[in-house]
């Protein structure tokens, strides 16, 4: 079991303490000479550079795989063919009822507790690449909020959010398309928004209330580290039970501890849970990315992982047999 540990950088390695005699030698020299600080520093730079010369290093780590990438092309083309074939010839399945996870129920309850007069801040914090997944989750939720008569605002934290907000609102069929408010400054902006109770900071865009005034803050996220920024810079300044989240499937694991600690009241991760959520809210689920194609893609990955295990076991067995023979 050793190789992987060394490979990924977890093997304890040992540093060699500097030789004491070397240090003592240096001090003697320094005492004998009266040097300016800058001269000393330059001498140190040169000493380091000279020390680098001829220093023994083990060979650089080279990728074990062959440079030829034919297997990449074969797998890529096979997968593309399977997905395109499914898209063209297999109809998408009807949505099935299934067990609803606790975090989805928690989000549903929080949404249904919202009423007319409540204020909700919808934070759009995802990249154009994941917009299809995010829109399929967010559009039914926005439709629900709009139907409830809840007063809501759209906040975007990155420039592309300005057009993503238009896309989301028009897909959800919300008219007129609400104006998206741009919050500059990344984590600095999030922090400024969280602490500013009087809306006095020039940094904050007009039309936005203090975060404490919102009954709920609905995060639409596709990045774990960006989600963490909201949990670290904004959540400590607000009472518990404010944050709700719709996250891309890739962030499902990241949200787990924050949901368990109560910093997020409820969340939905991925299109499947998004469809469940839409049903629970009495909305029509969005047209998902073709579910059968998604299943085909997942099965391909399963087969690949199993093949990887089998071929490695086979290679190990062959190696052992060879060793036994010699």
């Amino acid at each position: 079991m050793e190789p992987i540990v060394a490979e990924v950088g977890m093997q304890p390695e040992v540093s060699v303490p500097p030789e004491e005699s070397e240090t003592a030698e240096e001090q003697r020299v320094a005492q004998d000479l009266l040097l300016l600080r800058s001269q000393k520093e330059r001498a140190e730079v040169l000493r380091n550079l000279i020390a680098e010369e001829g220093k023994a290093f083990p060979p650089a780590h080279k990728p074990k795989s062959s440079h030829k990438s034919w297997y990449r092309l074969v797998i890529g083309l096979l997968m593309l063919t399977a997905l395109i074939g499914t898209l063209l010839f297999v109809p998408p399945p009807a949505l099935k009822e299934g067990a609803v996870p606790a975090h989805v129920i928690a989000l549903q309850e929080a949404m249904q507790a919202l009423g007319a007069g409540d204020k909700v801040l919808v934070v759009l914090d995802y990249q154009p690449a994941t917009s299809r997944e995010m829109v399929s989750m967010a559009a039914p939720v926005l439709q629900f909020i709009a139907e409830r008569g809840v007063s809501w605002q759209l906040l975007v934290t990155q420039p592309s959010g300005l057009w993503l907000a238009q896309e989301l609102a028009s897909t959800a069929g919300i008219t007129p398309i609400p104006e998206a408010i741009y919050l500059p400054g990344g984590n600095l902006g999030v922090f400024a928004l969280a602490i500013d109770q009087n809306q006095s900071s020039p940094l904050l865009p007009s039309g936005l209330s203090a975060l404490n005034d919102y009954r709920a803050i609905l995060l639409l996220e596709d990045s774990g580290s960006q989600f963490q920024v909201w949990m670290e810079q904004a959540s400590p300044w607000l009472g518990k039970g404010r944050f709700l989240a719709l996250v891309a499937k890739q962030d499902a694991a990241m949200v787990l501890p924050y949901y368990d600690s109560g910093q997020v009241t409820g969340y939905v991760a991925g299109t499947q849970e998004g469809a469940l959520m839409a049903q629970l809210l009495g909305q029509q689920p969005m047209h998902l990315p073709h579910e059968r194609a998604l299943q085909v893609g997942l099965i391909i990955m399963m087969v690949i992982l199993i093949l990887s295990m089998i071929t490695k076991a086979e290679a190990d067995a062959t190696g052992r047999r060879r060793e036994e023979k010699t």
Binding site: D222, K249, A252, A253, M254, G270, P289, L294, G297
Partner: peptide, 20 residues
């Protein structure tokens, strides 16, 4: 393992949506 599958699913969703 969960993070790997999570990202793969997100990437796959984007791929299928783009092909669609």
């Amino acid at each position: 393992g969960m993070l790997f599958v999570g990202f793969y699913t997100t990437a796959l969703t984007a791929l299928i949506a783009q092909l669609g």
